[in-house]
Design a protein around this nucleic acid. Structure first.
Lengths: 329, 329
DNA sequence: TCTGATATGCTCAGAATGAGCATAGGGGGA
DNA sequence: TCCCCCTATGCTCATTCTGAGCATATCAGA
């Protein structure tokens, strides 16, 4: 079996307080169109580095010139592409995260709200109702469906930790763990699709439930792309805390509320306005321009720019989120 | 040109307060033996996942059974392996970080103090003298050798940031940036070796200095393995702050000072003992066993165990290092 | 028994954090 | 015109966390 190396891009932009990712249509099972992440091969003869290869085909396919790009993870599980079951090559993919401001794209690519893929991740208007209405009961059933008591206990604990149930707090960064749990519990359509497509190859390790549970209302993706997307979201949520990457998503000048809204969109939580402002200003991350924006609907807000010098002054500045502790209660 | 996918392992253990990595000998240029990281191919037909493939050949090659394993980064720059220049395949490698307790290994593998590869990273006995004696002057020369003034300015700034010169603080996590800077400035032998081996392919982009500067006293590695190692060290230094991974390196029971010494070995700095202890204990990371260790050379110390439940109680506990701020001065 | 270790408990000042009150200064509508 | 609604911005305050150090406990060995 050959190995085929591909490159995947999770391209993120935030507009109107909505975090969006760039998707391309891909014909899935039964001719249905599924969203996929932009995908391209590495040209080993011409692409000097992996990320230059990525930039090349993103430019070719969508007309988008990527700025900030960061390697995410390399996915190489067997059967991540169904053609493998038909003797096709083993597909290994290096996934990248890119942050852009630009929003116009060519061809059939389109921007989608990433919370359509993960409705349980958006806590900006409070705890998402899908958790208590659908996820918690479905996971309860998943826990109970386990034959052995100590296995049930392990499932219970895992469900509690990743979804913050039973008194455990919500950890915004555990996006991937949550998606993977839902996948294992057969609560997302991809689980059933992959089971059918791989001809039961994975069935031994991960038996499907006898009764088909009700699927969660969320948008699926082709291949394992929703897993890749979950990886990206989790990574980005972590990263904004200790590196000033948000500014890649903002125009050159912005108000502090705009900045806050973008951070909130990514983190999926609301922040205390005055404290956020204090953190950002005393942290030296931004600098006032003296100019004002009067489109605020209230008192005009000062326009700020990102202070690139901050990178040289302090080791690891981020925008700061509440409740970021490293240890201690 | 074909693409060939390999797997690399940075296998870390800490014994006697020395962080060690597992290396294998590899014949380098002029028959000299260079250290290399353990390396193996992915068997696309049998290895279900990338990390299972890694575990397989590490077991086969060294007899070591890996526990904690984490994907680090995928390296795919052109000419990272010299055989590419002779029409060989484009070598892409997925690097993994593994933490182990076990120290006995088969074959010709051997453990090496990782600070032999990065002497400037060990600040446990204060600022390493190599920085002021060798690195700072060499970087000064590198800055001055730049023809354009604003390029000089950029070089100066970069050198200051990554090595904490000119009043900028030292950031323990920037291990890779430091190594890459030294490589670019032709202060490590790999820079010269690669230049010779690739037949000047990279020379255009990165001209060598006219005068050959004195190399730093540090141990080189084959291929780009020192770059991979630097990635691992930086990642691990970051990770111990927010995930309890240190315990993978410790025996089941340990004293608080042992724990502290291991953290210090990885972080490369000394910590305030009482504060470290407060952080770890009030953080609920460990639990006393009531038993004591009287090998301390002083008052006997209580033996502790890692409290795995902490993972369920709090989102992201780490062992805590001083000076970890997310923003603000 | 004294000395030299390390372990462990405790204090205290300064900094950071979370929450909220108060005032400023726009625009739009009565 | 003036009032009201809205967002911006400044400031306070209690609580918690952090960094640093002092003091005492308990062992081994001289």
């Amino acid at each position: 079996m050959r190995v085929e190396l591909g490159l995947n891009a999770v391209i993120v932009a935030v507009t109107e307080e909505v975090p969006r990712i760039l998707t391309v249509p891909r014909s899935g099972p039964a001719e249905a169109l599924e969203d996929a992440l932009p995908f391209g091969p590495l040209e080993p003869d011409t692409d000097r580095t992996l990320d230059l290869g990525l930039r090349r085909w993103v430019r070719e396919q969508t007309g988008l010139e990527l700025g900030y790009v960061e390697q995410l993870y390399t996915f190489g599980d067997r059967y991540r592409e169904p053609r493998e079951t038909q003797g096709g090559p083993r597909g290994v993919t290096v996934a990248y995260l890119a942050l852009v401001r630009e929003v116009s794209v060519r061809r059939d690519a389109r921007w989608r709200d990433w919370y359509e893929f993960f409705p349980w991740e958006d806590w900006r208007s409070g705890r998402p109702e899908v958790i208590d209405r659908a996820i918690a009961p479905a996971l309860d059933a998943w826990v109970k469906s386990s034959p052995e008591p100590h296995l049930r206990q392990a499932r219970r604990q895992r469900a509690d930790i990743v979804f913050g149930l039973g008194g455990v707090g919500w950890d915004g960064e555990r996006v991937l763990e949550r998606y993977e749990l839902l996948y294992e519990a057969y609560l997302v359509p991809e689980a059933w699709r992959d089971r059918a497509e791989t001809g039961g190859a994975a069935e031994k390790r991960r038996p499907a439930p006898r009764e088909r549970p009700e699927l969660l209302p969320s948008r699926p993706m082709a291949f394992d792309h929703r897993r890749i997307l979950a990886t990206a979201l989790g990574r980005l949520r972590g990263k904004i805390k200790y590196r000033p990457v948000v500014f890649e998503l903002l125009p050159p000048t912005f108000t502090l509320l705009q900045l806050q809204r973008v951070v909130e969109a990514l983190a999926g939580v609301r922040l205390h306005k005055q404290n956020f402002r204090r953190l950002v200003e005393t942290g030296g991350l931004v600098e006032g321009t003296g100019r004002q924006d009067s489109q605020t609907g209230g008192r005009p807000a000062e326009l700020f720019v990102f202070r690139r010098e901050v990178l040289r002054e302090r080791p690891a500045p981020g925008v700061g989120l509440p409740g970021v502790r490293r240890a201690v209660s």
